[in-house]
């Protein structure tokens, strides 16, 4: 690959953000499960380098709507603010992403621009922009996303691994369970009853994690269990190949490749079971 010879500093077509501007934020709010939802708008003065988090922090300190009505600070989930923990995921202007990496300069460069914030729709709302993503983690349990080691005592080094494989696994392993792939997936839908979690679509993240652990020398031990789960209801065959997951993944994890790889694995797994009588 040839490196570009010219220094790249910014996109040429980018609108230069106006200084000292005010942007209107319209936020979907809900006081709790079963409570009525409402929209509230806030005008927020924008400092250079502002992101959605700093805007929400401003609103927390000045919770007054555009009608001049005093309200409560907006509730939202956040953590590292560096786009590695996955907590602050929400729907911004109709599209799911992390709010910490969403610079106001990029999405609302002009005075008077508007931005809407909504909670993710595929998980039950706890309050305002905060949703309960327990199902996402539950689905990792379904595919036994772990390496079954013998315990934490010192038993020497792990298996060696060639660098190519490490690169593949590392990429898959950067999944931060944010839920973007699930929010954008037409096959993954709101399911509030945990009783149904075992048979509802498991989602791209879990399929990709199954691949991650099937690729590991020791992780392979549980390969059959994982493939059985992926063959079953809500497994990899329930994927509709809309491929939204890979487009919204903030870590650019090759989720659709994982889906293809697991498709292949379950095909082989089932054939082996059929012809060789393997369990």
């Amino acid at each position: 690959m040839v490196a570009p010879s010219k220094p790249v500093t910014s996109k040429p077509d980018e609108v230069k953000p106006e200084m000292g501007r005010t942007v209107r934020f319209t936020i979907h709010r809900c006081d709790g499960p079963g409570k009525a939802a409402r929209w509230e708008s806030f005008d927020v003065p924008i400092e250079p380098g502002s992101n959605i988090i700093s805007v929400l922090q401003y609103i927390a300190a000045h919770p007054v709507t555009i009608e001049g009505k005093r309200t409560t600070p907006v509730v939202w989930d956040s953590g590292c603010l560096e786009e590695v923990c996955g907590a602050c995921t929400m729907v911004i202007n109709g599209r799911v992403r992390q709010s910490c990496s969403c610079l106001i300069d990029h999405i609302a460069p002009r005075n008077g621009d508007e931005v809407t914030l909504e909670p993710m729709s595929k998980f039950p709302v706890v309050r305002d922009l905060w949703v309960d993503r327990e199902r996402l983690f539950y689905n990792l349990r379904r595919v036994k996303a772990w390496v079954p080691i013998d315990g934490t005592y010192d038993l020497g080094a792990g298996p060696t691994e060639n660098p190519d494989k490490q690169e593949t696994r590392y990429k898959l392993s950067t999944c931060m369970s944010c839920g973007c792939c699930l929010e954008a997936c037409p096959q993954f839908n709101l399911e509030e009853d945990p009783e149904h979690w075992d048979s509802a679509f498991i989602g791209a993240h879990a399929i990709s994690q199954a691949r991650l652990f099937n690729e590991h020398e020791t992780g392979k031990q549980l390969k059959r269990d994982r493939l059985d789960e992926l063959m079953g209801p809500g497994g990899v065959s329930d994927c509709g190949n809309a491929q939204n997951c890979v487009k919204v993944c903030p870590k650019e994890i090759p989720l659709t490749e994982s889906i293809g790889a697991m498709g292949r694995a379950v095909t082989i797994h089932s054939l082996a079971r059929f012809f060789a009588g393997k369990k």
């Binding site: 010192d154 038993l155 080094a157 060639n162 660098p163 490490q166 696994r169 590991h216 020791t218």
Partner: peptide
């Protein structure tokens, strides 16, 4: 380090796999 290695942490590798 050995333990983490066994847990499957994708540590960067040399060409020999170390």
């Amino acid at each position: 380090i050995d333990l983490l290695d066994r847990m499957g942490v994708p540590f960067n590798r040399t060409s020999e796999g170390m």
